[in-house]
């Protein structure tokens, strides 16, 4: 598996909003090529932590280093062009065709060569039919739109993907297939991915490392296997309890029939 994604190091990162401490002195090392899930209740600071990595939010204190460079060593827009960003509300540009939406990053970077081929390649990558290229966003289903969102983020071949509840608004079936496909993509392209989710089952399935946040801090840091086996703290246990109970229920149902 080729690794193209960078490693990430957070040193004592904080961010306040007035009196609210959204992120409270987080230090973290993320290995290149890993898939890290950030889980936690709503308001626990997951989005804030994620957005500080591409400087959509500026930290009050601390340092973030991606690969070898501190994030504030370049202008924010230059930094962001090297990082893929996918979020729950998708944010496709409604006045642009799907093709243009996908290629907008290339347009910003001034890459004119082979744009058409790249669009075709990306559509294939996210498993969308080629004829979607000429459609407008509002002619696509929610799942199709988020596939475009992923394709758009991947267009400039970033090594790092930041995903904020990317499949949170989709129906379970669509969501499952997208999760599956993204996991494959992540591995094939050797990306570093940080994905925010409030769904522990998704995190357990997808990630090779799970960070549990609460009130701006990381309360648990474990592999899925460690989490499921317990012994990683109450917060994590509470979150794991739900998918575990569901699974148990399903198994019980299966045994009955």
């Amino acid at each position: 598996m080729p690794v193209s994604g960078p490693s990430i190091r957070l040193k004592n990162i904080s961010r306040h909003y007035g009196n609210v401490c959204a992120v409270d002195g987080v230090s973290l090392d993320i290995a290149a090529g890993s898939m890290v899930a950030l889980v936690g209740l709503s308001g626990s600071g997951k989005s804030t932590l994620l957005k500080m990595m591409n400087r959509l939010v500026e930290p009050d204190g601390g340092e973030i280093i991606i690969g070898a460079d501190p994030v504030d060593s370049v202008d924010p827009h230059i930094l962001r062009r090297r990082i893929g960003y996918v979020f729950q509300n998708i944010g496709l540009f409604p006045h642009m065709t799907i093709a243009r939406n996908i290629a907008i990053g290339l347009e910003l970077a001034g890459e004119t060569e082979g744009r058409r081929e790249r669009i075709a390649e990306l559509l294939e990558l996210v498993e969308l039919p080629q004829e979607m290229a000429s459609r407008m966003p509002d002619q696509l289903s929610g799942g199709q739109q988020q596939r475009v969102g992923v394709a758009r983020a991947l267009a400039t071949r970033p090594g790092l993907m930041l995903m904020d509840e990317p499949f949170g608004a989709l129906d379970p079936v669509t969501r499952d297939s997208l999760t599956d496909q993204y996991k494959a993509l992540h591995q094939r392209l050797g990306l570093t991915t940080i994905i925010v989710t409030h769904d522990m089952a998704e995190a357990l399935y997808l990630a090779d490392r799970i960070l549990v946040m609460e009130a701006g801090r990381i309360r648990a840091d474990a592999t899925p296997a460690e989490l499921v086996s317990g012994n990683v703290g109450e917060e994590a246990e509470a979150l794991v309890a739900i998918p575990r109970a569901q699974a148990a229920h399903l198994i019980a149902l299966g045994n009955k029939s």
Partner: peptide, 8 residues
């Protein structure tokens, strides 16, 4: 947010 995230 998408525009910012893309690095515009």
């Amino acid at each position: 947010e998408a525009a910012d995230g893309l690095g515009m």
